[in-house]
């Protein structure tokens, strides 16, 4: 192609405009939410339950539900993901069929839409596992496990966030220099001792990053918990794994589509969105910071 001067100018202007659009988009979205939600956001809003048919009051139960779900999800998902990553990085041969199969599965899992995870949770956890549990332990009349609850929602989320954990933990473990593994093995350490005493301590920030990324991905998702545990409104906080729970993302959805008076709850919707965004942003920020620390240490 001929080198036309106008092409260079066009590239600069075009890419600049594209970049500006992105920034503008973020600013507009954030400003909109901030302005809309600022007046409603208060200590009371964060610490009180919804009242008056969800047209007043706060979002405390939804915050609690989100936290519980995220914590349970991490307790299940991070160890399984970390162990898988340890296997892939430390034990599996690069050409092993089994390891390739795991990688293929992880990549596929990462591409599955969230709503499909929700349906899977409904079919597998609630109907199959929960139904089985009720038949085995229940009185045959009352449904205890074969219905949406905190446990099934958290497990569904754990499955969905597994690829994030596996990929980031494995990357962190691969960043540990081979020389350190060799040093440990040459001293007569077993593979597991090497993993436990050398590889894991040197990739701990990566492990944390994986956990935080999974949490921040999980905290914002609503689709997987639509059928597996989120409740429209509950008068009490969940106090067992078999209870349903309120959740921030779902709460926004409910109030903007299902509420008897959408207009009246505008402030609450904005403020809830703001809370959810602040939550996921601070988690993302924590992940970025941990990763930065990790990179800096890897270079040093």
């Amino acid at each position: 192609m001929r080198n036309a001067p106008w092409l260079g100018t066009l590239t600069v202007v075009g890419s600049g405009a594209a970049a500006l659009t992105i920034i503008l988009l973020v600013v507009v979205v954030m400003a909109n939410i901030l302005i809309g939600g600022w007046d409603t956001l208060s200590w009371e809003f964060l610490s009180a339950a919804p009242t008056e048919g969800m047209t007043a009051g706060g979002v405390f139960p939804a915050i609690v539900g989100t936290f519980l779900r995220v914590i349970l999800m991490s307790i299940v998902g991070v160890p399984i993901g970390a162990i898988t990553a340890i296997y892939l990085s430390e034990y599996a041969s690069q050409r092993s069929i089994f390891a390739r199969f795991i990688r293929f599965a992880v990549n596929t899992l990462a591409g599955v839409p969230a709503i499909v995870f929700g349906l899977f949770g409904l079919g597998f956890f609630i109907q199959f596992v929960g139904g089985g549990m009720d038949r085995a332990f229940g009185d045959g009349v009352e449904l205890r496990w074969a219905q949406p609850n905190l446990l099934w929602a958290s497990l569904t989320m754990a499955l969905m966030t597994l690829p994030v954990v596996i990929v980031s933990v494995e990357e962190a473990m691969r960043n540990v220099p081979r020389e350190l593994r060799e040093a440990s093995l040459a001293l007569g350490a077993s593979r597991w001792q090497t993993v436990y005493k050398v590889v894991l301590p040197n990739s701990i920030t990566g492990l944390l990053t994986g956990g935080v990324l999974a949490v921040s991905r999980g905290a914002g998702e609503v689709a997987p918990i639509l059928f597996t545990g989120a409740a429209y409104f509950l008068p009490h906080l969940p106090n067992s794994l078999s209870d349903q729970f309120m959740e921030l993302g779902y709460h926004i959805y409910v109030m903007s589509t299902q509420s008897p008076d959408v207009e009246a709850t505008m402030g609450i919707q904005y403020a809830t969105t703001l809370v959810l965004l602040l939550l996921t942003f601070s988690l993302n920020f924590a992940a970025v910071y941990l990763r930065y620390r990790m990179r800096k240490r890897a270079i040093a």
């Binding site: 220099p177 020389e179 350190l180 060799e182 007569g188």
Partner: peptide, 14 residues
């Protein structure tokens, strides 16, 4: 490997 120790080209302290 406990009986046969090894020193590497590039020093590799933990």
């Amino acid at each position: 490997r406990k009986r046969v120790g090894m020193i590497f080209q590039k020093s590799n302290p933990f």
